Amino acid sequence: MRHVLAILLAAAVSLAGTAAPALAQSSLAQSSLDREQIARKHFGNDAAWYRDRIPFFESSDPKLDAVWYYRWGLFRAHQRDLGAEGYVTTEFLDDVSWQRQPYASLNDASGFHIAEGRWLNDRRFTDDYIAFMYAGGNDRHFTDHMADSVWGRYLVDGDRDAVLRHLSVMRHVYRLWDEKYDFAKRLYFVEPLLDATEYTVSSIDASGGQDGFRGGDSFRPSVNSYMFANARALANMARLAGDTAMAREYEARAEDIRERVLADLWSPSLGHFVDRYQVDNEHVKYWQPIRARELVGYLPWMFDLVPDEARYAGAWAHLLDPKALAGHAGMRTVEASYEHYVRQYRYLDGAPECQWNGPVWPYQTTQVLTAMANLLDHYKGTGPVTRGDY
């Protein structure tokens, strides 16, 4: 079981598209598995699609095996054929009103999609998706770490032409985010809704506790971690392309973001990375830190932004504390002591609708599991976190 856990930890570390080493598929291990039989067992009449495309895996734990193939089943289900524009990966199986019409694409989960798709033997799906996103598909509806995931794909397949194909557009997209950059504070800010995390502490408190769907623009650990990771990826790509000036520029950008996140978004009193308000109104003030810990505070570890120091590693104690972020059903998005924890704001046809002020949210749970895997894999100081906790 320990061996299986090590495999899963390594896989989780690689999901973020960070500085994981290139992994070569073991042809010996793959050839020893009866792919036809396994594919039929898990996918029935659709086995042919998976047989030569996905990496196969077997362990002594049938639950782990089931999860592995369930994930590939989901990946397959979310492929949408756009005809001449190729395939994209959708966030929702059904169409939603806020998707980019008529393609059903959204960029907030693109980093996850590319990180998953890079393991496919069939390069077409992720090639098409990246090309679509950098041909106008990434309308910056949400924040994302797409460039970082494109670099992470290169660390797996070593395809130099593919990783550099859209470099000029990636650079252009990065600079478009200057509109959400405070040049005095040297940090990025965003409305939580456009960070795919509406009903957070910043948006709820900025409304005086009355709502939280819109508003609450803040300097957040999330968007700044994404921009750090994307800058680092662009620096790596530029160096690969032989553009040393661009490489130095984006290395400097990444390090400057790291410096400001550590100096300004770390709360010594809460022992956690937190938002600071960019908005200034009758309820909250510019640069004021939020008053509660949120799950988003672990995202800097998702991209190895955080130094290997005990004071930072101690933040993980809150994730294990039932009075803080450790809920009965999984990770809470905000600690239970927050005044508006699980207060219901949204209703659909009279029934409570999903929101992000406490209940488990798979999108962010996945991010924090990746961050925790990084912590366990290559940090010397892991604080209170153990592999058993993972």
Rank of each mutant, 00 (worst) to 15 (best):
T197C: 09
Y286R: 10
A19P: 02
F273P: 00
L8V: 12
R258T: 07
L194E: 08
H42Y: 15
N224D: 14
L375D: 05
Q101D: 14
L33G: 02
S218C: 15
T126A: 09
L74S: 10
K185N: 12
Y129E: 02
D264P: 00
P289C: 04
R253C: 08
L187R: 03
W356Y: 15
L320S: 04
W72K: 02
N224E: 06
P221V: 01
G83V: 10
D81C: 05
L262D: 11
A336H: 03
A373T: 04
H328E: 15
N374A: 10
G271K: 03
V169D: 06
K185I: 03
A109D: 05
N357Y: 01
Q30C: 07
H283P: 03
R291N: 10
R258G: 09
Q99R: 11
D52G: 15
R51G: 00
Y379G: 06
G358T: 00
V261T: 07
A254C: 11
R239C: 06
S26D: 14
E335C: 01
Q288F: 02
W72I: 02
G330W: 03
A373W: 06
V306W: 03
L193C: 08
D195C: 06
V368W: 13
P359E: 03
P221G: 12
L120D: 07
D304H: 12
H283R: 00
A135C: 15
R387I: 10
A47H: 14
R171E: 13
F56W: 09
L8F: 09
H42K: 06
L325N: 03
A245D: 08
A77F: 12
F125G: 02
S168V: 13
D148S: 11
H283E: 08
V279N: 01
L93D: 09
Y69I: 04
S27W: 03
F57W: 09
E282D: 14
Y347P: 02
N224S: 06
